[in-house]
Amino acid sequence: MNLTTNLGKLKLKNPVMTASGTFGYGKEYSEFIDLNNLGAIVVKGISLKPMKGNPDPRICETPCGMLNAIGLQNAGLKEFIKQQLPYLRNFNTKIIVNILGTSINEYIELAENLEAAGVDAIELNVSCPNVKKGGIVFGTDIKIFEELIRDVRRRTRLPLITKLSPNTADIKLFAKAAEDAGSDIISLINTITGMSINIKTRRSRLANITGGLSGPAIRPVAVRMVWECFKTVKVPIIGMGGIISAEDAIEFILAGASAVAVGTANFVNPIATLDILEGIKSFMSGNNIKSLKELTGTVKC
């Protein structure tokens, strides 16, 4: 059985990756799973300077999912390269770094430094709904979005992944724009903006008022968007949004994903990624499927 998947020039040993922001920098999960068995680790978003994040409460549970407004808390590029990257490099898996900035120049500086530091790919975070500056601005204004990708593309040889926001009128337009601007891969979906109110206090259950919805609640939306983008672009797609089982992952693959990212499920079950990988293997062997290519985008419509 061939589990490898080629995302352009980024070659993964299997299609199961982690979603940014749900796996820290890997260390916490190494106690539960062998990180060598993952297709790739996408680390928590990194900015040039440390970010302290939003006030609490930052999360609340909602039916079959959760809202979060962490606010991209991270220790910054220097700390990541010094403290986290050397550890991650001990494992035989691809290390993908999610980056975010408040200006195009910041994204470029991040990409250049990370390329020099020896990471395997960059994921442009243009779709975080929880910070006022940067983030989603780049993901919802299509002109700035294209300019950002084009400029970062010129300055790095690393495989470039653009993570798409579902909080736009038509995600296909952004998928196409990302492809045209030189993104090698697209990943989708980021969280869907949401809100939950405590009716006793009449306050939002998040200090940030709104947050990003993740978990199985958003899966049908995500599958639909992957399918739409698959029909629109030629670049490979990393599918994500509420994957909690192998069956969920296979849905995304049939809709057009060449790889899948597991997010919120890591919080629920720290061995979710490898459970899902095992499930994909047994689905393939049970159905006499020799390679992932026989599955990607083969939904009958």
Partner: peptide, 20 residues
């Protein structure tokens, strides 16, 4: 409130004299 309990989601922070 916590999502993971393991330190990765950064959802359960409290503000301290040394930051979140």
């Amino acid at each position: 409130n916590m999502a993971c309990g393991l330190g990765t989601c950064l959802g359960c922070v409290v503000n301290t004299t040394d930051g979140y």
